[in-house]
Design a protein around this nucleic acid. Sequence first.
DNA 1: ATCAATGCAAAGATTTTGCATCTCG
DNA 2: CGAGATGCAAAATCTTTGCATTGAT
Lengths: 145, 145
Amino acid sequence: MDWKNTMTRLGYRISEPRKKIMEVLEGAEVALSPQQIHQQLEHKGFDIGLVSVYRTLDLLTSLELVTVVYDPERNPGYVLSSTGHHHHIICQKCHKAMEFSGTDDIEELIHRVEAETSFQVRDHLLQLFGICPECLNTLNDRGDK
Amino acid sequence: MDWKNTMTRLGYRISEPRKKIMEVLEGAEVALSPQQIHQQLEHKGFDIGLVSVYRTLDLLTSLELVTVVYDPERNPGYVLSSTGHHHHIICQKCHKAMEFSGTDDIEELIHRVEAETSFQVRDHLLQLFGICPECLNTLNDRGDK
DNA sequence: ATCAATGCAAAGATTTTGCATCTCG
DNA sequence: CGAGATGCAAAATCTTTGCATTGAT
């Protein structure tokens, strides 16, 4: 709901393709690549160009409505950024991405690093990788590692 | 020096291309993309295929001798991983990447997130972005933002 | 001598750009 | 209506793969 306000306020239009793309992201459990989003749109019967997906994601990312998630074993993925800050935990099996909150400890660390390196810290990216509860069950069931 | 031991121990060969690529990484202030590494090799007069750069980086990364650094405004970059854990701070102007140490605060955070999400955390990626001391000077000199 | 590593060429995949057309506001 | 957004096709990048040759151990 809120992304529409943000975009209108900044002079961007609420077009059909943009609405559909946001719907996909809102319904996503997992961080999606541009191609995956495009495929989901097709499956839903919406004929939206891959190019528009790229352009929309770029825009949404620059407005910080969407966050990029990096997964070493995968293509970059996009998820809604609800909090506005980039903390994600990603399942190494199903690639589900969840946000987590609480910047306290990190702020502390940032101050320490600023003191040690003389950098002026402006942003940060913290991602944890692991196995989500569901996948843990699967692994146990099948006796995988 | 040490990477040679690691590779030999694991049965990989110390070839000329690999030596040259490591030299570039060892001399780098900045996280380099495969293409950049390839270019530097050319400038130094070494005629090493881009393909080998890719393959070498993949190998080095899998052995954790090299770490991938993600920079939203740039292609993925590769840097030597001295500590073995993935904490980097990257300059948003010159893209220099430095490592920083100290996992204490993060471990704490990880435990909290494990408790909250029921994920089993296996790895993490923390990158800070900011402006390095040198670039801060430049910005001040020129009155940039 | 042997098997891994390289290099080339070619295929695949991903992302970007130009331009005419459409559409939201 | 008019600026902004879309879509297509095509180009530009980036990465991967197969295979013959070379080279490290």
